[in-house]
Computed example of a mutant assay.
Amino acid sequence: MEKRILGRTNLEISAIGFGGIPIQKVDKETAIELIKKAKEEGINFIDTAKIYGRSEELIGYGVEETGRENWILATKSPERDYDAMKKDIERSLELMKTDYIDLYQLHNVRTDDQYDKVMSEDGALKALKEAQKQGKIKHIGITSHDLGIIERALDDDIFSTIQFPYNPVETQASEIFDRAHKMDVGVIVMKPVAGGAIRNVDLSLRFILENSNISVVIPGMNEVKHIESNAAIGNNYKPLTDEERDIILGEAKELGTEFCRRCGYCAPCPQGIDIPVQFIVEGYYTRYDLKDWAKERYATFEHKANECVECGICETRCPYDLPIRKMLKRVHKNLG
């Protein structure tokens, strides 16, 4: 397996990591089998999160079975204040059956207000730093779908890693990744097949790994065949041929007509709808076969897609000219 250094953490990790979203769909025995297989294939990096259902728990069973020393574990919490983050750290340690977590990340910081909150005197970062001093976590990272937030994080230069979407459809983070690499900040790529929209998975993963600024890519896996095919990319990496590049970029072009890149330029919605998040959750429904989970998440939203009054302001801001009003109707039809 090709290994890369995760920035200033100096951790040597597999270029292909284990994305923990879909494992929540399997039972304990299958989860253990999957983690065992990942180890056999040379994968040593696992990324999960509090909000991924039973993912932390199921991964914990697999890690316990295969040996903690074989894994670099990353998880994340969406909490923004000190007390809530402190509780989540303890919860993650317990569920993942470990005394320490290699990388604990602030999960999906979406707005400047949220960023200011986590950085405040009683913010989540304080809890993470405290746990780091206690040896409960080794390194601190941040994830977002907003380039502006990642830019602020790099400006502050306190995070060991950043995590952001990147694939043949979504390459807007290329310059940010270059900056992060020069700052010795690890780069973790999520959404490597655009939430399941990209059909040519192997070509997409190879496209991503061509970028030397990227430390690891974390495709979601809940079947042995997924682990075998994804790990094979890292175990026998080959750059794309010109013909293969044309194929994957052609597919990316096709997806471009009604595909949300989550750039956030459509915001703010006058009705308070978080438009990109509506499409993210719909992707779990349509592409990851997490229908019940997606509907449950959608039900928690304060403002849902059906609250759109079709003012069209969002569409005037979208750099990709997406028919957002029509797409929001589809979201509510699927999830409402």
Rank of each mutant, 00 (worst) to 15 (best):
305 A>E: 07
336 G>P: 10
2 E>Q: 14
111 T>P: 06
55 S>Y: 02
242 D>C: 09
209 L>R: 11
301 F>P: 01
30 T>H: 08
85 M>H: 01
254 E>C: 00
40 E>H: 04
145 H>D: 07
27 D>N: 14
105 Q>P: 04
328 L>T: 03
205 L>Y: 00
35 I>S: 10
170 E>V: 04
145 H>I: 00
258 E>Q: 14
333 K>N: 14
327 M>I: 15
61 Y>S: 09
220 G>C: 02
53 G>M: 00
286 T>K: 07
269 C>A: 12
65 E>W: 09
111 T>R: 13
329 K>Y: 06
92 S>A: 08
88 D>N: 07
31 A>Y: 06
321 D>A: 12
322 L>C: 05
202 D>A: 11
147 L>S: 01
177 F>G: 00
204 S>E: 04
226 H>A: 07
157 D>Y: 10
291 K>W: 06
329 K>G: 08
43 I>Q: 03
240 L>V: 14
298 Y>E: 02
67 G>W: 07
213 N>V: 01
137 I>T: 06
318 C>I: 06
181 H>M: 12
174 S>L: 15
87 K>S: 07
320 Y>N: 15
250 G>K: 01
267 A>L: 09
254 E>T: 04
96 M>T: 05
224 V>F: 13
274 D>G: 12
9 T>F: 05
10 N>Y: 14
47 D>F: 00
286 T>G: 04
142 I>Y: 08
222 N>E: 13
245 R>D: 05
165 P>G: 10
10 N>H: 13
78 P>L: 00
12 E>G: 15
315 E>G: 05
316 T>Q: 12
72 I>Q: 06
195 G>M: 13
164 F>D: 00
79 E>T: 00
9 T>W: 12
274 D>H: 05
125 L>T: 02
131 A>V: 10
66 T>F: 13
9 T>D: 00
63 V>D: 13
60 G>H: 11
167 N>I: 05
242 D>I: 11
220 G>H: 03
58 L>P: 10
32 I>P: 09
327 M>A: 08
53 G>I: 04
251 E>R: 06
331 V>M: 05
106 L>C: 04
64 E>N: 01
197 A>G: 07
181 H>T: 01
184 D>R: 14
90 E>F: 14
101 I>T: 06
29 E>R: 13
181 H>N: 11
146 D>S: 04
180 A>Y: 03
130 E>S: 07
24 Q>C: 13
73 L>D: 05
119 M>E: 08
20 G>W: 04
10 N>G: 15
54 R>K: 15
92 S>C: 07
317 R>N: 09
90 E>W: 12
210 E>S: 03
287 R>T: 08
169 V>D: 01
82 Y>S: 07
192 P>G: 12
49 A>C: 00
16 I>E: 05
11 L>W: 01
122 D>L: 03
244 E>N: 11
3 K>E: 08
270 P>I: 02
213 N>T: 04
61 Y>T: 11
71 W>R: 08
5 I>Y: 05
323 P>C: 15
69 E>D: 10
241 T>D: 12
126 K>D: 06
296 E>A: 15
9 T>S: 14
183 M>C: 06
280 I>P: 02
70 N>P: 10
8 R>P: 02
108 N>S: 06
291 K>C: 08
314 C>W: 03
214 I>A: 10
289 D>V: 12
288 Y>R: 09
307 E>D: 14
305 A>R: 04
252 A>V: 03
117 K>S: 02
